[in-house]
Design a protein around this nucleic acid. Structure first.
Length: 618
DNA sequence: GTAGGGTTAG
């Protein structure tokens, strides 16, 4: 800021800023995204031949325009230069790449090479590598590594970081590791890139280990000081990017113990109260089944934004606590009247409708839907319709839900709404409307497995076996495959995964035996296996066996067998929980006196003493 | 010049 003020004073006082002055004040405009001031300086430079022919001024102008997202203005400045130095080429290439004009960046790179005879340097390559990664038209990505070596740029930290990222995104984490391990100097970006690489390929344990290592290296470098960032400081403290990379991984895995460790690091590094990290923590706790911890973290974040609130509203909704979600929304609106950072947005309403839907609060949800535009300025979009159709349909008003789909504005995509409607028809066994919805969906999204599965289930639960088989056949013909059911549970340092009917787990035999004995005990208490979700053309006894192989039951059995009596069991699943597993979990919670927290793909089920927090409404 | 951006129904 001061630099800019100084510049103005200088001009006002009659001094003529030279190229050096202008080229050093422009980066300030660029950094602060002060486009108008930047334009003012550009206009000033245009009045002086000496200035506008200065290549450094040109590069700074290109950079300023591109940083203010005025890429075409940047290109005009670039074009005006006939004699182009490498800094000018780099400014334009980087400008393109940072605005994701990847093809343009690559074309300019080729042009630079062909037309000017200039050799790309490390700056050029650290923009070209990410641009080529994103650019689909550029297929032989790995060849760029060879090119980097040919140019002797493979020892540059920025280029190495960019290459590591490239390999991670190509699924070749091992090569990223090789580069990372070979680096003489690593900075925070190197570490974060490697951590991200591990998260991308699902190696969460390795990602976490790297955060440990990071802190050890920090101690080492404090002594010999061979790693530094741009300002020459020792940089190897995790930053907010580190935490935001790893926390969603913990959330997805429902890895509570790991999440808590990360939380303690975040506290240690004074980042737990950062709004972005804090929001990610709230989400992590919520998705690990700890709604009260999520609330506690939320309460401690001093400055919240709309995402922080949305995360918590969503969390209460997922846990079936709709009343509290609405209460939070009131607080949010209240807070938003003073702070425009927390005004409800389109995601807020999705979270609210989901919360109402999970808690059967139809009237409250509809009321919000009718007021969202008038009271909060949020236009109902296609996703909102899909949620409200779900809200109505799930509660049994299938006809009304159908009417809502029909009254949707024509410009909106209806696939989501049809899909909600189809789901409702499955729950309430409405063949007629289900067929209508399915016909639309099989037209719009012929390769989505769930549409076929839902329709087939609607038919078979109404005894229309032939039609059900027909849909299955059609699905097979289309080559559409259903995502296999998968459940997982954190145990010790690892997350154990189970697929439906999985026999690969080392304790597999023991788990199946245990489930069979348990099943007998449950039957004595009144449990009747619900075989309706097993569609195979097999007899009842075989259906029961198939049910025992459901992934959530296997994960649950694993948890019970490997933890002390009374320990709460937390299981997560990639699909919705099936009727029978839901029922069985209720019995198990009672017979074995265990709290079971089961997260399905949409919401939580807290089983305790024979009942579920969802009230059997899901 | 290189790393991420957290929340989203079915």
């Amino acid at each position: 800021m001061e630099a800019l003020e100084f510049f103005r004073l200088m001009v006002l006082a009659g001094f003529k800023p030279d190229g050096v002055t202008v080229a050093s004040v422009l980066p300030a405009c660029s950094h602060l995204e002060m486009l108008d001031t930047g334009k003012e300086i550009h206009a000033y430079a245009l009045r002086t031949n000496e200035l506008i022919e200065n290549s450094y001024v040109g590069s700074a102008l290109v950079d300023m325009y591109c940083n203010c997202r005025q890429v075409s203005s940047g290109r005009r400045v670039f074009n005006a230069f006939l004699e182009r130095k490498i800094a000018l080429w780099n400014a334009m290439i980087t400008g393109y790449a940072q605005n994701e004009y990847d093809k343009e960046a690559l074309n300019l790179f080729l042009e630079m090479y062909a037309a000017s005879g200039l050799s790309p340097n490390s700056t050029t390559m650290s923009s070209i590598v990410p641009a080529s990664v994103r650019c689909e038209a550029f297929s032989d990505k790995q060849s760029i590594h060879g090119y980097v070596i040919k140019r002797g740029l493979e020892k540059n930290r920025y280029v190495q970081n960019a290459l590591m990222d490239m390999y991670s995104r190509m699924g070749k984490t091992q090569i990223s590791e090789t580069i990372f391990n070979s680096m003489e100097v690593r900075d925070i970006v190197s570490w974060n890139t490697m951590i991200t690489g591990y998260v991308i390929c699902g190696r969460h344990g390795d990602a976490l280990n790297l955060i440990y290592d990071m802190q050890r290296v920090k101690e080492k470098t404090n002594m010999n000081d061979n790693a530094y960032d741009d300002e020459g400081r020792v940089p190897l403290k995790p930053n907010s990017i580190t935490f935001m990379t790893i926390l969603p991984g913990c959330a997805a895995l429902a890895a509570l113990a790991k999440g808590k460790e990360i939380h303690s690091y975040a506290i240690k590094h004074l980042l737990a109260f950062d709004v972005a990290v804090g929001s990610a923590l709230v989400d992590m706790y919520s998705k690990c089944g700890c709604i009260d911890l999520a609330r506690a973290v939320f309460n401690q974040i001093p400055i919240k934004n709309v995402i922080t609130w949305n995360v918590l509203i969503m969390a209460y909704g997922m846990h079936g606590r709709g009343e509290e979600a609405l209460e939070l929304f009131k607080n949010m609106v209240d807070d938003g009247s003073r702070n425009k950072e927390v005004r409800p947005n389109e995601v807020t309403f999705i979270a609210l409708f989901a919360a109402c839907s999970h808690s059967g609060m139809v009237d409250e949800g509809l009321d919000l839907f009718h007021k969202m535009k008038s009271d909060h300025g949020v236009e109902p979009a296609t996703d909102h319709y899909a949620c409200v159709v779900d809200l109505l349909g799930r509660a049994g008003s299938v006809e009304e839900a159908y009417q809502l789909v029909n009254t949707m504005p024509s410009e909106l995509d209806k696939a989501g709404a049809w899909s909600s409607l189809l789901g409702a028809c499955r729950i309430h066994q409405n063949v007629e409307i289900g067929e209508i919805a399915a016909n639309q969906l099989l037209e719009l999204e012929p390769s989505v497995a769930s549409h076929y599965v839902l329709l087939s289930n609607i038919y078979s639960s109404s005894g229309l076996w032939d039609k059900a088989m027909d849909v299955r056949r059609r699905m097979k013909e289309m080559g559409v495959k259903k995502e296999p059911g998968c459940s997982w549970i954190e145990f010790g340092d690892e997350v154990h995964k189970f697929l439906a009917g999985d026999l690969s787990h080392p304790q597999s035999e023991q788990l199946h035996e245990f489930l069979e004995t348990l099943s007998e005990k449950m039957k004595r208490e009144g449990y009747v296996p619900d075989t309706s979700c097993v569609l195979h053309n097999v007899d009842e006894e075989e259906k029961e066996t198939l049910l025992c192989g459901h992934s959530e039951k296997l994960a649950l059995a694993f948890g019970i067998l490997n933890t002390r009596p009374g320990t709460t069991i937390r299981v997560a699943k990639n699909l919705r929980v099936c009727n029978d597993c839901h029922m069985a979990s209720k019995y198990i919670s009672k017979i074995l006196d265990r709290e079971i927290i089961l997260r399905d793909v949409r919401r939580f089920h807290h089983f305790k003493n024979g009942t579920c927090s969802c009230g059997d409404y899901w």
